[in-house]
Write a protein that binds this DNA or RNA. Structure first.
Lengths: 209, 209
DNA sequence: CTTGAAAATGAATGAACGTTCATTTATAGA
DNA sequence: TCTATAAATGAACGTTCATTCATTTTCAAG
């Protein structure tokens, strides 16, 4: 007796081609923009004729939707399951997590920001809701830290947008092998973020473990 | 005897149509993205047939190039000619200038950031050079202020990118008539930027009037 | 009013687009 | 080996695209 979950349908190659389509579309969309990429180009990257793409995705729009929805869902799951030293404060957790995740998934992040306007309204709303959920995490950290006197933030929502914009800009200039390592970047930004929200009477902490 | 400079050629409507083309293309490119906008749409906005556009711009690409080159040149001229109270410190000048300019010209800014990848290499290089010139203004402010002990910035180039990303993100969420006025936003961001680059021993300045 | 050049028209061009579909090929289970 | 189904093919569909061009219209200067 065999488990249903592990049985592959006849004629199937699993989801291998679909994965390759996602990967090729991700690269192309990130590089040239959704509207400038043709199904023919994606098919050529995958090594298949254009028509074959439609065995895996009903339309080009659905490929974009799949990439963006998956990305936002993954982002929130990654935050929920991220492991940090117990002593690390929430703001440091968020900054390090955000930088790491966004450097690891530069293409996904880029697409999810740049191609929002190419999403149909329903899908746009889903993505926006996820984005708001993610921003709410930082807002809550700032709000609670502010209430406890650990930070001084005039407007936690504005500060959230400011910090996230600052951090999300990193992949536009950071390159592996440059004179700054990923850890250096984390430390530099963490210092700036901490100072930006610091209580006015508080000493800044230069060392960042 | 009449001045050559003021004589209009016969049959000409001055540069009126060209201006309308720029304006329509700006709105369309900002709204839907360069690749998703057709010459037919631009022509319809202008109130002219598609072929007429080619009396003013040789190709669609040239419209984009014109918009982006003009924007970057205008930005640098605006900085050079901006008027500020004599007592205002350079960092405050830059922050207020950047926010004002980017809120005033949201469409131009958006295009110059989003459509870089649709520029031909030569034009891309020109735009990038202008962007570097603009960033160098802030880097220099941070560098000199740091040397003078007014700020404490570990890496002026990284801080420049962080600050500019933070400020440039404002037009993505700021809306006129919201609960924050433009001046409120300036003050909030100025406070965060000042704190982010503050010397560690320095008291923050809360009032920004 | 005439002239001449700029601007706009209307029609057309070939190319590229997303997508469809009847048919063939590949493959895993019986 | 046979069967059933997924996957891929190859060709085509109608549409839209940026661009071209001969012709017509517009209009300031003479």
């Amino acid at each position: 007796m065999q488990s249903i979950a592990t049985r592959s349908p006849p004629g199937s190659k699993g989801q291998e081609t679909a994965k390759r389509v996602r990967k090729a579309a991700l690269k192309r969309f990130a590089g040239a923009g959704y509207a400038a990429v043709s199904m023919r180009e994606i098919a050529a990257d995958v090594g298949v004729r254009p028509g074959a793409l439609y065995n895996h995705f009903p339309t080009k729009q659905d490929i974009l939707k799949d990439l963006m929805l998956t990305h936002m869902a993954d982002l929130l799951v990654a935050w929920d399951t991220a492991q940090f030293p117990a002593a690390m404060d929430p703001l440091e957790r968020f900054v390090r997590f955000h930088i790491r995740y966004h450097l690891e998934r530069a293409d996904e992040v880029f697409i999810s920001y740049m191609e929002l306007r190419n999403l149909e309204p329903d899908n746009f709303e889903i993505i926006e809701a996820e984005r708001r959920r993610y921003e709410a995490i930082l807002t809550s950290i700032l709000h609670e830290g502010s209430a406890a006197g650990r930070y001084s933030v005039d407007d936690p929502k504005v500060a959230t947008r400011a910090i996230i914009a600052m951090l999300t800009g990193i992949p536009t200039w950071y390159r592996e092998g440059g004179h700054l390592g990923e850890h250096d970047v984390e430390d530099l930004y963490l210092t700036m973020v901490r100072k930006a929200v610091a209580s006015e009477t508080r000493k800044f902490q230069a060392e960042t473990g």
